[in-house]
């Protein structure tokens, strides 16, 4: 019984170590780390809903003058 519990403790320890090994990651610099973080950051879907409502309440955006389209500015 005692040996059994010792064994399961050992198994747990190995499983824990394996999990850690899987989770371990190395990033060569902060750019890489931040890119990884950005890629794994999800944008709350509520923003799109709020935007849709807010944009619907606004008057249509002003049209760009034809001469600005032609000459820039």
């Amino acid at each position: 019984m005692k040996q059994h519990s010792k064994l399961s403790q050992k198994q747990e320890h190995v499983a824990e170590q394996t999990a850690h090994a899987h989770a371990a990651r190395e990033f060569s610099n902060s750019d890489e780390l931040l890119r990884f973080d950005a890629a794994h950051t999800s944008v709350p879907p509520e923003i799109a809903e709020r935007l849709k409502k807010s944009a619907a309440q606004l008057p249509p955006p002003p049209a760009r003058s034809w001469w600005k389209n032609l000459f820039g500015g």
Partner: peptide
């Protein structure tokens, strides 16, 4: 320390650390 890799054990805590 810019040349040494940034090692992360738990990616779930990564956001907090960053």
């Amino acid at each position: 320390k810019t040349d040494s890799p940034l090692r992360v054990l738990e990616t779930k805590e990564l956001g907090q650390r960053i």
